[in-house]
Amino acid sequence: MLEINNLNVKLKNSDKEILKDLSLLIKPGEVHAIMGPNGTGKSTLSKAIMGHYNYEVTSGKIKFMGEDISSLDVSDRAKKGIFLCMQDPTVIDGVSNSEFIRTAKSEIINEKVNLYTFIKDMESAMDDLSLNKNMLHRSLNKGFSGGEKKKNEILQLKVLKPKFIILDELDSGLDVDSLRIVCKNINDYLEENKDTSVLIITHYPRILEYIKPNYVHILNDGNIKYTGDMKLALEIEKNGYSMINEMIGNGVNE
């Protein structure tokens, strides 16, 4: 599904490399988690995959379903089926939530979306997420609480039906009940779309209790230093990231 080979990424207008020779292979249907301390390049990785304008790939390749997407623009990557659930969704005053999602849907399927079907689908998805239906008519993310913003991201996911989902710190700003609802919706989506893959970016293992990863990677200094499974995430919660440094020092799994 997603194949990253020796990826080096830097901020535009800066010489500082953030991702250094990073490689990662995610097969269809797999869930991978990337964990790591602050400032190690986790969010940079998600934005580089999506094609964010602030980052420049200096070498290496990002392949999605066999195709090199490194030179594609952001909307073309999304049309191919990549969805980035953002850590802090952007507020856009004046653009209504419904108009935004309907436009995105029609761009992705490349045909006009029937209004009646669209509203029925949206209302059903909003019920699943316990979202108030008046949010459809409000400006995009304007005045939304942290939980509403994250639920609105998942609402878009349910409507746009991506093949590869990046969850960038999904649990930030979510209370326990909202996190449970959001994760249930993601799990239901994965159950219905078995080939869909997920990349979870997180500091804490709490979200991984709801969305079970096949692999957990530890990112440090712009590269994956260690790979394990859920047990690794729980170990980190218990002992902190310093334990990884000790393991790397011992030459384990690098």
Binding site: Y53, A78, F83, V95, F100, I101, I108, L160
Partner: peptide, 14 residues
């Protein structure tokens, strides 16, 4: 730019 990125990240052309 952040606003454009958000819209385009959902498949909406520039």
């Amino acid at each position: 730019d952040e606003v454009l990125f958000y819209l385009m990240s959902r498949g909406i052309s520039r």
